[in-house]
Design a binder for these strands. Sequence first.
DNA 1: ATCGTTTATCGTCGATCAACGATTTGATCT
DNA 2: AGATCAAATCGTTGATCGACGATAAACGAT
Lengths: 102, 102
Amino acid sequence: MSTALNPQATLAAPMDSERFAAICRALSHPARVRIVDHLRTMQQCICGQIVEVLPLAQSTVSQHLKILKASGLVKGTIEGPRTCYCLDGGVLAQFKDMVKRL
Amino acid sequence: MSTALNPQATLAAPMDSERFAAICRALSHPARVRIVDHLRTMQQCICGQIVEVLPLAQSTVSQHLKILKASGLVKGTIEGPRTCYCLDGGVLAQFKDMVKRL
DNA sequence: ATCGTTTATCGTCGATCAACGATTTGATCT
DNA sequence: AGATCAAATCGTTGATCGACGATAAACGAT
């Protein structure tokens, strides 16, 4: 089997259903989708800005951010008293790639 | 609207986070991802064939199929005593499109 | 009409989720 | 040190999920 000749069937690692499902799970809540969307258009932002935009308590938003961070889609860097969140382009690209294969 | 000229920015409907999340939710379980994957490679198949492939009880697989059907990703047509399942290309395409925009 | 096959539904149970208010942690600024 | 602000964590509550066995429903075949 010439693996090189049939990119379609080969490299394409038999999609890790666990990982894919985990990312989908992170995106399985409207609030989290909106957060990702917001992060995409804003480039980056802090928790408080998201709280302003969503009809949810600060603690709830923080929870959602934690879930997104755990999935790898979002990463947060501490900046003084606040945390700056942004999308992880690499993980997002991975996800898009997996979806393409669906 | 020159949607063709600027696909990047397309106001293209401010992605319905509810709908997108709903589809992600359907894909948020490894078993369901595997079912979709199986359906993709098999083109179509019946519940029993999926049960053979997954380490789950028939009732559980049926439940997962019901969830996938509810999301629109999968459609099932009754064929005598059995039901033939297959992916809904349209919904799948919609989903891929939404992901592209992420 | 009864049997066998295939799928859907029911009922249950433990586990996880979503949301909130309250509290704690961490860092900056007086 | 003390005050202040942002963010994370805790603890609780009701709701939903995931899995299963058991049962029902639908259909074709004998």
